[in-house]
């Protein structure tokens, strides 16, 4: 069975794939931000307060992407 036949047999709502994609990118991004912060705090525990604030800024920027991606059904539906 080639790719075209498989694609023709697919049914369902395409938006579900969009929800999934909107979760994948920010998931990887937040994971990277948090893992690097843990590494940095392990190296220099006295910087924890400063690093936590910087980490929050990183998470805020990454999750904005997820929130916008999940809200797109309002204009593309």
């Amino acid at each position: 069975m080639d790719v075209i036949n498989i694609a023709a047999g697919l049914t369902g709502n395409l938006a579900v794939i969009g929800y999934g994609l909107a979760a994948v990118g920010p998931g990887i991004g937040v994971g990277l931000v948090v893992s690097k912060t843990i590494e940095s705090i392990a190296r220099q525990p006295e910087l924890a307060a400063k690093l936590q604030v910087t980490m929050w800024l990183g998470i805020a920027f990454t999750e904005a992407l997820a929130l916008i991606g999940l809200a797109t059904p309002f204009i593309f539906a």
Partner: peptide, 12 residues
């Protein structure tokens, strides 16, 4: 929907 999206995204 456009109003929801139009305030949600600028707010974020």
């Amino acid at each position: 929907g456009v109003a929801v999206f139009g305030t949600l995204v600028p707010s974020i």
